[in-house]
């Protein structure tokens, strides 16, 4: 199967105005991601990785430049198409989990399917299967408040996968989790990538993420400073990962 480009950005700038001062969160980001890749965007806080993540996810619009999702310039999409894209083609995972507090795990996971027009029974069954897959088969009726951080993030992963998206965007998915739970979440994401051939893009400064990545894109001050492939990474991961765990 030939590789295809699922995400491509072309000279993406994002400028905020703080009073009269211009702040450039992104300064001309041009990258491309192939379908089925696991990409980590690394960089210190304030380097623009979350901003970039929002652009790719269609949650915010660039000041200039284009974002293509599967060859479609998403700035050209109307409100309805954008919502449809978010519903069907992109799954989001957040640092703060962002589950709906008044709904239980099953309802949280089935919500995107309801939006997508799936019937009640069908969406419930699929949500239950997804929750079982992420190891929460016995927590279907628990509400977020009754679950640990790691469990909530698992629900969020199941929810992100609800409509079989092409891309999963994860913004600091391990940021609020301890080392061990964080590693479990990364393992789960990797398994999902293998099983479903979904493209995973994470914004992170968690070095544990490196080992799972096919490529790492380093951000500094809103610019790409380095892109490393897995082959170049392996040596470094040993030291960084090892140093962190020691």
């Amino acid at each position: 199967m030939s590789k295809r480009e699922i995400v491509r950005t072309q000279g993406v700038w994002k400028t905020y105005y703080m009073g009269s001062e211009e702040v450039h969160a992104l300064r001309g980001i041009s990258i491309s991601v192939e379908a089925g890749e696991y990409i980590s965007i690394m960089g210190p806080s304030g380097s623009g990785k979350s901003t970039f993540f929002n652009m790719v996810g269609g949650l915010d619009k660039p000041t200039s430049g284009e974002v293509y999702i599967d060859e479609v310039d998403i700035s050209q999409l109307g409100i309805y198409e954008l919502a449809w894209l978010r519903c069907r083609k992109i799954g989001y995972i957040f640092q703060t989990f962002n589950l709906i507090p008044v709904m239980n795990a099953l309802e949280n996971v089935s919500l995107p399917m309801v939006f997508a027009g799936l019937g009640a029974d069908e969406s419930r069954d699929k949500a239950a299967a997804l929750l079982a897959r992420v190891g929460l088969g016995d927590r279907l009726t628990h509400r977020p408040i009754e679950m640990s951080g790691g469990q909530q993030q698992r629900v969020a992963i199941a929810r992100a996968l609800a409509n079989d998206p092409a891309i999963i965007l994860a913004d600091e998915p391990t940021g609020n989790l301890d080392l061990k739970t964080g590693r479990e979440i990364i393992d789960l994401l990797t398994e999902m990538k293998e099983e479903r051939n979904v493209t995973i893009i994470t914004a992170t400064h968690d070095h544990k993420m490196l080992a799972a990545s096919d490529r790492v894109i380093w951000f500094t001050d809103g610019q790409v400073t380095r892109i490393q492939n897995r082959e170049d990474l392996d040596i470094r991961v040993g030291t960084i990962g090892g140093a962190e765990e020691a």
Partner: peptide, 16 residues
Amino acid sequence: YREIGTLKCLGALDSF
């Protein structure tokens, strides 16, 4: 607000 933002990420239209 956060919940509303999340709903929109999951594909909710403004009208929902």
